[in-house]
Design a protein around this nucleic acid. Structure first.
Length: 103
DNA sequence: CATCTGACGACCG
DNA sequence: GCGGTCGCCAGAT
């Protein structure tokens, strides 16, 4: 699969903002939906400066497992994103929406 | 070929 | 809020 489009989009996520797997899938019209986006991130290549920690589940939930979820939380808080146990508090405001031309 | 397993998400009780 | 179902899909066993 060519997940490149996803990684490119991920790179555009502004610091201090987040996006969901579902949104990504929708934005790049990824066949397979959110789950495919999840696979892409799980396969996320290191060394390409991809802010993987800014990708969360629907509703602003952190879906990773330990110990990665702890790291994600740490990274998010480091850029000013408040996180409760496994959930972004003001998700509605923190959510980033990529610019897409014409619905 | 049958199952299981995920960095998913919408729905329902 | 929580747990279960279902649609979705690629790989691994």
């Amino acid at each position: 699969m060519n997940f490149n489009a996803i990684y490119q989009l991920a790179k555009r996520i502004p610091r201090g903002r987040v996006i969901t797997y579902g949104q990504i899938a929708k934005s790049v019209r990824l066949p397979g939906g959110a789950r495919a986006a999840g696979r892409a991130m799980a396969n996320c290549p290191v060394g390409q400066a991809i802010p993987w920690h800014r990708v969360v589940g629907a509703g602003g939930r952190l879906l990773l497992s330990e110990p990665n979820v702890s790291l994600q939380r740490k990274l998010l808080e480091a850029e000013g994103v408040p996180v409760a146990e496994r959930r972004i508090l003001d998700f509605a405001v923190r959510q980033w929406r990529p610019v897409r031309r014409r619905a």
